[in-house]
Amino acid sequence: MRARAGLALAALLAAAIAGAVAAARTGAAPPRVAPAGPLPEVFLSDRTAARLGIREGDTLELAASPAGPWHLVRIARVYRPVLYPTDVALRGLDVRLHLPDLQALLREGDQVDSIVVRLRDPARADEMVARLNAVALGFRAYTSADLARRNSSTFEVISRFHRAISVVAILASSVFLAAIMTLRGEELRRQVGVMRLIGISRRSVAAAVLLIATGVALLGSAVGIGLGYALSAAINVYYRRAFDTTILFSQVTPALLGLVAALSVALGIAAGAATAWRLLHRPPLDQIGR
């Protein structure tokens, strides 16, 4: 096993440092720790650098708490981090340090929040996790899959929430379609009466009504898909700009299009069938007002 405590671990306490940075700009002058050698180097995300108005080569003071002590560091690089969906809404400042520098800053000794382990044989991850957990020291090991499952639970809940909202939207559009078809059926009443009086079969009349309803549903779904594309694009433009990221927030997939079209046709046929039943239920003379 080859274990590596990555530099990225150091970013886990960035929020505390960020608060300290903010405090330094407005607070009373706290004690400062003079560096013994060259200044420790840190990386800053581009968003953080923009918020603080600093760039590569500048210096920065960091502390684990607003009370200090403050440590002078040099910004070695401003970089654009790959944001995960879980991070995208976080607005805190983001500083990355070498692990020993952060440990010195926190004065908590050789302590890390997590250790990332790369295996030569990833297929043996479960076995390795079991062995690590059997050691019974003060840690808990997880496979990447376990962690992904644990961390994605919020997104699963949001996904369920969106599905529930879509059920309400489908209910609303069904009623909308039924109301429109009822009105359309009343407009067709006389025509249907005449058609039946001149000998056109009930089946043909019903088929005509169903065709109209399906056409309305398909046309509506086509317009709806167009609106959906426009709204999706607008959402992506707005949120990508708002969160300064390239993450895709809204996506219209072929499967979604198929579902929408199928639902529209099914709802249209159901509304048409109900309208046809109402129309054919009445005598032809009654339908033409005699």
Partner: peptide, 22 residues
């Protein structure tokens, strides 16, 4: 005058109104 139509409209408005309230 047309209770079925009015009922359907009210049902539709109730659903959209419910979504708005939520």
């Amino acid at each position: 005058r047309n209770p079925v139509r009015t009922a359907l409209v009210l049902l539709g408005l109730s659903v959209t109104g419910a979504l708005l309230l939520d």
